[in-house]
Amino acid sequence: MVWIKVNFDGSMCGNLVATGFVIRDWNGNVRLAGAKNSGQMSITVTECLALRDGLAHAIHNGWRKILVEGDSKLIIDCVNNVVSIPWSISLLVQDIRVMSYYFEEISFQHIFREANFTADAVASLGHNFAPSRLWDCELPLSFSVPFYFDLVGHACPRGFRL
């Protein structure tokens, strides 16, 4: 069985938030991506929801070896039981930990924002949907630049904008 990678992120525009995740196979090809307009909540809760959504879709699709990457050090540290969990995300972290039992292998890693650019772009697009959107084996054409930066193993440079 092969590994897949789940990147997740949250986006805030004014007082509204959106979630996004991108699931790629071992070759870096997009298998599934999703974005959701989530209304008003904290960015910490939003990022946790993005992670939970990505894992739920991985479970649904039968993928069992997962590498999870996100730029929220707090979320990654909470899931890895490195820090105390804030009450606002305690139930979400509990859900994520329970979902983790569905996988043969799973690893949660913190990455810098520049290396999470594709998930960030997908989350930003989530503000345009009511309530959500899934892309199967593709991403919108407007994400081709950050996606190919990531595909060849390079983070987008600091300050790069779509």
Rank of each mutant, 00 (worst) to 15 (best):
L92W: 06
A35N: 10
Y148M: 14
S100N: 01
V145G: 02
T46F: 05
T118S: 06
T44K: 12
P131R: 11
L51M: 13
W63K: 04
Q94L: 11
R133H: 13
F149S: 05
P157A: 02
D150F: 01
D25N: 15
G70Q: 04
N128G: 12
L67M: 14
A56I: 14
R113S: 08
N116P: 03
I106P: 02
L151D: 08
T19Y: 00
P86Y: 08
V83L: 12
G126A: 07
S124C: 11
V2K: 13
W26T: 15
V30T: 11
V6T: 09
A50H: 01
I4W: 09
G10K: 00
R24K: 09
L151P: 06
G20H: 00
F129Q: 09
V6I: 15
I75W: 07
V83F: 14
G28L: 06
I43M: 10
A56M: 15
E105Y: 13
Y101C: 00
A50W: 03
E69N: 11
R158G: 08
L51S: 08
Q94K: 14
R97D: 08
I75P: 06
A50S: 11
S144D: 12
L134V: 10
R52T: 05
V145W: 07
A18Q: 05
I76K: 06
A18E: 01
G28E: 04
S107V: 09
E138S: 11
C137S: 15
M41G: 04
C48N: 09
L92A: 08
K36M: 13
N27A: 15
P86T: 08
D95F: 04
Y101K: 02
C13G: 09
S72W: 06
W63D: 02
L162F: 09
D150S: 11
E69L: 07
L139W: 05
C78L: 00
V82T: 15
R24W: 03
G10C: 00
F21T: 03
E114D: 07
I76L: 04
C13W: 13
G34D: 03
R64E: 05
A50Q: 08
G62Q: 00
H154M: 10
W26A: 13
W87E: 10
G20A: 03
V82P: 05
